[in-house]
Amino acid sequence: MSGKTKPSLWQTLLFLLLAIGAYLVIFFNIEQLNQFYLSKAILPAVCLLGTVICIAFLYGSAISNLLSLVGLESDH
């Protein structure tokens, strides 16, 4: 659909594994993490938003690369 170069399979797999790893770490430690995130202080709130950015970047890149590999790339 576009003239952009496709991402490599290794790059896609790396992002995918990192995203899955991040999800597993967060969900297996959710009780402790929520105790910190919900403690209503500035640092936990900043850390919470930082976590959201990291996940959006890792998982977003993984999905974008994956869709590019199967020919469904998007400029969005």
């Binding site: 959710i30 919900l38 976590t51 974008s64 969005h76």
Partner: peptide, 26 residues
């Protein structure tokens, strides 16, 4: 978040579907 209203579990679960749907929709 400062008032303890943001549930990170829900944010992450939304991302699972939304980032895929976003690319297909676009």
């Amino acid at each position: 978040a400062l008032n303890g209203f943001v549930d990170i579990r829900l944010v992450l679960l939304l991302y699972v579907g939304s980032l895929v749907g976003l690319q297909i929709g676009a």
